[in-house]
Design a protein around this nucleic acid. Sequence first.
DNA 1: ATTATACGTAAGCAATTCCTTACATGTCAA
DNA 2: TTGACATGTAAGGAATTGCTTACGTATAAT
Lengths: 127, 127
Amino acid sequence: MANSSTTEEEQPADADVFLAIAHPIRRRILDRLARDDLTVTQLAAPFAVSRPAISQHLRVLREAGLVAERRQGRERRYSLQPQPLAEVSDWIHQYDHFWRTRLAALSNYLDEQDEQDEQDEHAEQEQ
Amino acid sequence: MANSSTTEEEQPADADVFLAIAHPIRRRILDRLARDDLTVTQLAAPFAVSRPAISQHLRVLREAGLVAERRQGRERRYSLQPQPLAEVSDWIHQYDHFWRTRLAALSNYLDEQDEQDEQDEHAEQEQ
DNA sequence: ATTATACGTAAGCAATTCCTTACATGTCAA
DNA sequence: TTGACATGTAAGGAATTGCTTACGTATAAT
């Protein structure tokens, strides 16, 4: 009952961005919208699924706040709304430190292997 | 048929990282593994679901290459394997430019609003 | 040896996802 | 107006997800 937001009724209260980007078709839609604003028919063209399927994917993206639609005559032109991706970006960046630490650890390990292999080399001219 | 990699047969051929991180429990598991290596029982403790449910989540993470397990007596200690997150990181970073462009556009818009509001300010000492 | 602990996995089930086809609505064109 | 686009949505169904309980198998403890 006492759910997420009591104050977000204008904004569609972004429905899980992580879920929205989990589907490869939806990611490809976003990729293409990063280049151009496109209509549904244009968006659907390169995909192997039906046009309504794309409409449904667009709904998921819309509810996640990742795309916006503007009506142009009988067409609806979609544009990328990248802000919600910040949540993913932030989450991923938590691991940057860990990342580097791990690479460093691997590097140290390899260095130690080298030391054990070579044991008394001084000239370090090979890369 | 001619899929991504023809040379990855030792590694479990990472099963969709985007899907693996789409579930909040799995993200929280990764978050905790970024601090400590933990056993399944330790991992399961704070969650509202059963221990087998966590085991199943761990399988998804394992198949995505995001965690590694090492057997320690009757326990299995899991550790974070952040490398596959690079795919997500790379994908997200495609949008960095778009991001900044959009922020810049917003900024310009606000600047123009300011210009219309103030119209003849010269001293630019505030940051 | 027996019992308890730590874990994976199978089976079963409700809910959800993702597709399809069919249809309703709104807009341009003749 | 009539017909051809452009699009959203509803209905239905197969596949998948995410949980549960039950069970099997190691390992540790007694």
